[in-house]
Design a protein around this nucleic acid. Structure first.
Length: 494
RNA sequence: GGUCGGGUGGCCGAGUGGCUAGGCUCAGCUCUGCAAAAGCUGCUACAGCGGUUCGAAUCCGCUCUCGACCUCCA
């Protein structure tokens, strides 16, 4: 089975073929840790988490690098993001970085995103970045001005390099459009040039020695340096949010080619934006919900709290290259769907029935749905489409449980296959967890057994007022009873 | 202004030139002491106008409209 992926470089779906067979090197641009991550960030990293998980499921040995940006990210007024965070909170820049890195990690754990293989920090790779600047200078694609070093986009373009290819920019436009602004560009030869190394002003506290000045690296440089260090000059996948395409990723490509003559990645993946009120969720303009606000329900945008797995499920319902708009209604729909899915997974795991010994009538349907799931995932990780098959399988599971489909119409072998594949998809690939696992507390389990037993007696005596009271009070306590053919079951509800 | 991507049923959200997306909601039915859950059935959509085609939501053109990027952003 072949995996096809959408490559931003070509704008087309391409057959995925790693450089080294059986191995994948993947670099994803991580967060800048000067402020709490918002849900838009989380969506991106959940998207790449599913990609990472699926690649591993296919048997690839994946080296997944996701950096942490803790220096070199300038604001409009030239202030470093880390320094701005530090100034506002009266902390050391490194305290700011640590604090928000911790918070970011907590969120990723909460949303069940696997940690990357390596999570390098920009400040931990100053030497590598300085070396890369030197390489670029040596090859003639950068120039020094007053202790700062800039990338020479004009020369890069003149030499026939593909500047603008990734972001679909037209070179002539890049060169001509901003000519009027030229006089306002202090040290740069050309407005489209960008900083590789920046000389630190006196009050700039994040600073390192370099051959050119005491200063700090430009924002784009860290990813070039760290991807090269851990994945080599050429690797398989480079990912990030759509909004990083230009200038960040474009400049990264330029830096890599400037330093070693090779474009870094064969495949570029870009995730689309999370919207709130039909507008891009963004830290800088305040249109955000934080993970904490979502989970606690403490937001003007939502009517109630939504659990981390509901959020994860919510993001799975849209393709990673589509925008996804947050609304309270759609979150509630996701919550119900998620619960239904988990309920079916529980049924699947626990059902003991007399399945057919030989292949049977429903086997074919189950097989084709499983095949469909792989087909859809192999089509550029189409998770929402895969989910459609998953829910069709849920209907089959529930029907078998309720006796609408006879266990004799499914072979034992096929049922086992169903369990294996569905659990792999739901838990291993989609990374969902059952938040309503009744086995997590033995005490409650014992108590519930007793209560259900007492209620059963009441029901046998047709003492409906007692049995209803038990059910109502439990409901208020967040436990839903469900009377079925084979006794009473219970589950947590919010 | 330039570049790019959208506009799908009550809501969210997939999608292929002809074949059921799926989830949620709503209505009816089955099951049930009543609930809840589950199953079944129904609610037959593709911004507008042209064109290509035996046939288009899917291809082309135009119009309207929304959004992203254009050196802060996942």
């Amino acid at each position: 089975m072949n995996l096809f992926v959408f490559n931003s470089l070509s704008g087309e779906k391409e057959l995925f073929k790693p450089i080294v067979e059986g191995r994948v090197g993947m670099y994803v641009c991580g967060p800048t840790v000067y402020y709490d991550a918002h849900l838009g960030n989380c969506r991106t990293f959940i998207s790449f988490d599913v990609i990472y998980r699926y690649l591993m499921h296919l048997g690839y040995k994946v080296r997944y690098i996701r950096n942490i940006t803790d220096v070199g990210h300038l604001l409009d007024d030239g202030e470093d993001r880390m320094m701005k965070g530090a100034r506002l909170e009266q902390l050391q820049p490194m305290e700011v970085a640590q604090k928000y890195s911790n918070g970011f990690h907590d969120m990723m754990r909460l949303f069940n995103a696997l940690p990357p293989s390596i999570e390098p920090r920009a400040t931990g790779h100053i030497i590598e970045q300085i070396e890369m600047v030197a390489d670029i200078l040596k090859r003639g694609y950068a120039y020094e001005k007053n202790g700062s070093v800039y990338f020479d986009t004009l020369k890069f373009i003149k030499d026939g390099n593909p500047y603008g290819k990734l972001s679909g920019r037209i070179v002539e436009d890049l060169l001509s459009e901003s000519r009027d602004d030229l006089k306002n560009q202090d040290e740069k030869n050309h407005p489209s040039d960008f900083a590789l190394w920046i000389r630190a002003s006196d009050e700039h506290i994040m600073r390192w020695n370099s051959p050119w000045s005491v200063g700090f690296p430009g924002w784009h440089l860290e990813c070039s340096a760290m991807s090269t260090k851990y994945l080599g000059e050429r690797f398989d996948i480079h990912g990030g949010g759509n909004d990083l395409k230009f200038p960040h990723h474009e400049n990264e490509i330029a830096q890599n080619m400037g330093a070693c003559g090779t474009a870094p990645a064969n495949y570029w993946f870009h995730t689309n934006m999370l919207l709130l009120n039909s507008k891009k969720m963004s830290k800088s303009d305040g249109n955000t919900i934080s993970p904490t606000e979502l989970i606690t329900g403490n937001s003007v945008h939502t009517s109630k709290a939504y659990s981390p797995m509901v959020w994860r499920f919510f993001t799975l319902q849209a393709h990673y290259r589509s925008t996804l708009d947050i609304t309270d209604d759609s979150l509630q729909a996701a919550e119900k769907a998620y619960r239904r899915l988990m309920e079916s997974m529980r049924i699947l795991k626990n059902m003991q029935l007399d399945f057919a010994k030989e292949s049977a009538a429903k086997d074919e349907t189950i097989s084709s749905l499983i095949a469909q799931m792989y087909q859809d995932m192999n089509d550029d990780f189409n998770v929402p489409k895969t989910l459609a098959s998953v829910f069709e399988l849920c209907t089959i599971i529930n029907s078998v449980k309720d006796g609408h489909i006879s266990a004799q119409s499914i072979s034992e072998l096929k049922w086992k296959e169903l369990i294996t594949h569905l659990e792999q998809f739901v838990f291993d690939i989609f990374g969902l967890k059952d938040e309503n696992d009744n086995n997590d507390s033995n005490t409650i389990d014992q108590l519930m057994k007793l209560v259900i037993e007492l209620r059963k007696t009441a029901r046998e005596n047709k003492d409906w007022s007692s049995s209803d009271k038990i059910r109502d009070v439990l409901k208020e306590a967040g436990i839903q009873l469900k009377d079925g053919k084979d006794g009473t079951e219970w589950m947590h509800v919010n």
